[in-house]
């Protein structure tokens, strides 16, 4: 296969040498079936070893390689070079502080995931010897979509609310909390209520729907957030009960 040389503009930031991020250009010979991540690796291997970026599975499921390509948050392992015309601009995810080059600070994101208590909460835990909980395909279907999130954080990069309210719990975390609330095995939605419906919870969302536009796994976090608004409102009024383990 013939390679074709493509121009990449990559936002570089090396805090030990630069005070501010700036773009640097690279000419990269690309194979026709390359994804943007392949080009980044080619730069790292053969052109400039100082480029830092995260990646791992390169099949769209580990969630490491989210970046902005021509301004859109994408998984670079699933963004084909051939689908872009002219110069390709690669930047770290928006709405996250930049640690270095294309690497952003994710600890806050992980704390938000943790804040919604994304685990099964029950009054009584069944013993393993007693076998599985029965769950019908319909009950599974109710939350399945929201369990598909790979934590790639593209939705956080796209969310206009997070741009102005950095403390907003955010689409992925709320979708995950909602996923557990909808799980027939769970009895803990009261435990998640404060995180999901508190000051930085669902009501910060103004339904820009950007999260669902960029989600590579079709989780539709906007749907989760807005379903959670309805559930939360009904719980607040007492129409729907809060399930609690205490």
């Amino acid at each position: 296969m013939e390679t074709q040389t493509r121009k990449f503009e990559i936002l570089r930031y090396r805090p030990e040498e630069q005070s501010e991020p700036e773009f640097r250009s690279y000419e990269v010979p690309c194979m026709p079936d390359w994804v943007v991540l392949d080009a980044l690796n080619a730069i790292k291997d053969d052109i400039d070893p100082t480029l830092s970026h995260r990646w791992s599975c390169r099949m769209g499921v580990c969630g490491s390689c989210g970046m902005l390509v021509n301004g859109r948050p994408v998984l670079t392992c699933a963004a084909f070079v051939r689908d872009y015309e002219g110069t390709i601009r690669v930047e770290p995810l928006s709405n996250f502080p930049i640690v270095r080059d294309l690497v952003v600070e994710l600890d806050d994101f992980v704390h938000k995931i943790q804040s919604v208590k994304p685990w099964i909460v029950r009054k009584l835990e069944k013993d393993v010897e007693q076998g599985e909980y029965r769950q019908s395909p319909a009950q599974l279907e109710e939350f399945k979509q929201f369990s598909m999130c790979i934590n790639c954080a593209l939705c956080y990069a796209a969310c206009p609310v997070l741009a102005s309210e950095p403390d907003f719990v955010g689409p992925a975390a709320i979708a995950l909390g909602h996923r557990y609330n909808l799980d027939s095995r769970d009895e803990g939605n009261a435990e998640r209520y404060d995180a999901m419906h508190g000051h930085n919870g669902v009501w910060s969302c103004s339904y820009a729907n950007e999260c669902s536009q960029v989600c590579p796994k079709h989780v539709d976090p906007a749907m989760a957030v807005n379903q959670a608004k309805l559930t939360g409102a009904l719980q607040w009024t007492g129409i729907l009960p809060k399930k609690s383990m205490t």
Partner: peptide, 9 residues
Amino acid sequence: PVAPARPPS
């Protein structure tokens, strides 16, 4: 040191 978060493009 980090570079501040940038708004969505």
